[in-house]
């Protein structure tokens, strides 16, 4: 039983670390801020969750697992907010590579007099 948990722990830790590494590579390789935010929010969140699960399988004590759960909950609650704030700031300050956008319905709405940025102030 202990052996199974240890193997699970190792698998989770290695997969989580790999995903975090790939997120870092994506952060460097993607062409603009908005694309980079995808790398910063997606593989990294799952990577952290896997690492937390790996630690949980290894420690196996109630007090540690509740702390790990808290970290997971706060990560899931805050990562989208951080990504949105950075993405919105980049979009509003025109730090977007327009040549990479297939279409931009936010700009279309702004042209049509329904500027979301202006409406929100």
């Amino acid at each position: 039983m202990t052996g199974v948990a240890d193997v699970l722990s190792a698998v989770c830790l290695i997969t989580g670390a790999l995903l975090s590494l790939i997120a870092a590579i994506g952060l460097v390789r993607f062409p603009d801020v908005l694309s980079r935010m995808h790398a910063a929010t997606k593989p990294q969140v799952l990577g952290l969750l896997l690492i937390l699960a790996g630690i949980g399988f290894r420690l196996r004590t109630g007090a540690d697992i509740t702390t790990l759960l808290l970290i997971a909950v706060f990560q899931l609650a805050t990562a989208p907010v951080a990504a949105h704030m950075v993405g919105r700031a980049a979009y509003r300050s025109e730090l977007v590579r327009r040549d990479l956008l297939l279409l931009d319905e936010a700009a279309e709405a702004a042209d049509g007099g329904r500027d979301p940025a202006a409406r929100l102030g």
Partner: peptide, 26 residues
């Protein structure tokens, strides 16, 4: 919806129009 969307498939909220209930998704 915005929270769940930000965590899953290749999507990022760049703007929210609260009055119209519209999400602008990258």
């Amino acid at each position: 919806t915005a929270e769940a969307l930000s965590l899953v498939p290749g999507s990022l909220i760049v703007e929210v129009d609260r009055e119209a209930g519209t999400l602008y998704v990258h």
